[in-house]
Amino acid sequence: MLPQTVNENILILVVQGRLQYTMNQATLIAEKGDLVFIPKGTYRGAENYMKEPHQKFSALFHHTIPSGTVPLLDKPAFTKAKVRNFEYIKKRFEALHREHLEGKPMHRFIGSGILQELIGIASRDVETGEISPMKWQQSGKIQQYITANYRRTIHARELAEQIGRSTNYTISLFKEVTGQTPVQYQRHLRITEARSLLLNTAMTVAEISEYLGFYDSSYFYRTFKKETSLSPSAFIALCEKEKDPAGEPDPHSSAE
C-alpha cells in the first residue's frame, strides 16, 4: 500500500504473519496478536513484511466520543499493543466483519456495539502496555543510525551510544518498539536493497553480496532465501512472471 493520509480511525488485529507499517516516518512491525490503532490524519504506508503472507482484520470508523472518555481515542499518534485474550478478540472481529458482510436488519447497531467493545478492550490493553514517547524517539535514533550504516557491520555498542544507554537496554528497547532486533532490522534493509538491485541493475549476486557487506556470496544467498523464501534467481523469475498479465495472481496478497 502506497503511503497516504488516512481519513478514518483504524483498529487492526493481525491474526497471521507480519506486516511492516511506515507511519509518520517511523517504521513499525506488527505480528500475530498485535492490536494497532491508527488515528485519523496519520500518514501511513503498509506492506507484507518480506513478502510473507499475512491476514488481519481492520475496522475503520469515525466517532463523536468526548475527549477524556476513551484514552485510546485521545492519542495523537499510532499505537501498538499485544492483546491479552487473542482468541476472544479475534472472534469479536469476525463477528463485526460478518455483520458488515451480511447486512441484516440492525447490523449497524449490532456492529457499533461490537466495535465499542473492541475499542474499550484495546484502550485498556494499550494503557497497561503502552510504549512511551521517549522510547519511540530513542528507537527512531537507532533506526536512523542503522539506515545510514546498514552496509557495514554495526556493533551493539554503537547503537547504545546513540541514546546513551547500555547495549542490553538498547536491544530490548528496539525490539519492544519495532518488533525486530537491530540485527533483523539491518538484515531487512540489506535484503530490501538486494531485491531492488536484482531487479533494476545488471549486478551479479557476487557483486550485490559484496556491495551490501556480506562476507561471502553463499551467506548472502542463504540470508536472502531465509528472508524471502526464494533464491535470488527464483525471486527474479517470480517478479518477471508477475509483470505478465497472464500470470497467476500474487500469492502474497493480503486478506482483510
Rank of each mutant, 00 (worst) to 15 (best):
L2Q: 14
P3K: 08
N7E: 09
E8K: 03
L13V: 15
R18K: 14
Q20L: 12
Q20K: 08
N24D: 13
K32S: 13
L35S: 10
F37N: 04
I38P: 00
K40T: 12
K40H: 08
N48T: 12
K51T: 01
E52C: 02
P53E: 11
S58A: 14
S58W: 10
A59P: 02
F61E: 03
F61A: 05
T69I: 04
V70D: 02
P71H: 12
L72Q: 04
L72C: 07
L73Y: 07
L73I: 15
L73E: 09
K75L: 10
K80H: 03
A81P: 09
R84S: 08
Y88T: 06
K90E: 15
K90Q: 12
K91L: 14
E94L: 11
L96H: 06
E99N: 12
E102Q: 00
K104T: 13
G111D: 03
Q116S: 04
E117S: 07
E117T: 10
V126A: 02
E130L: 15
M134T: 15
G140F: 14
I146W: 00
I146C: 07
T147L: 12
A148T: 09
R151V: 00
R152F: 05
I154M: 05
H155Q: 08
R157Y: 15
E158R: 04
I163A: 11
G164F: 02
G164N: 06
G164E: 04
Y169K: 00
T170G: 00
V177A: 06
Q180S: 00
Q184S: 11
Y185Q: 01
R187I: 11
R195C: 09
L197R: 10
L199S: 00
M203E: 09
M203S: 08
T204Q: 04
V205A: 12
A206K: 04
Y211K: 06
L212F: 01
Y215A: 03
Y215V: 06
D216E: 10
S217N: 13
S217E: 14
K225W: 06
T228V: 08
L230R: 15
P232F: 10
P232H: 09
A234F: 04
F235H: 05
I236A: 01
E242D: 06
E242K: 07
K243D: 07
K243P: 02
K243L: 11
P245R: 10
G247S: 11
P251S: 12
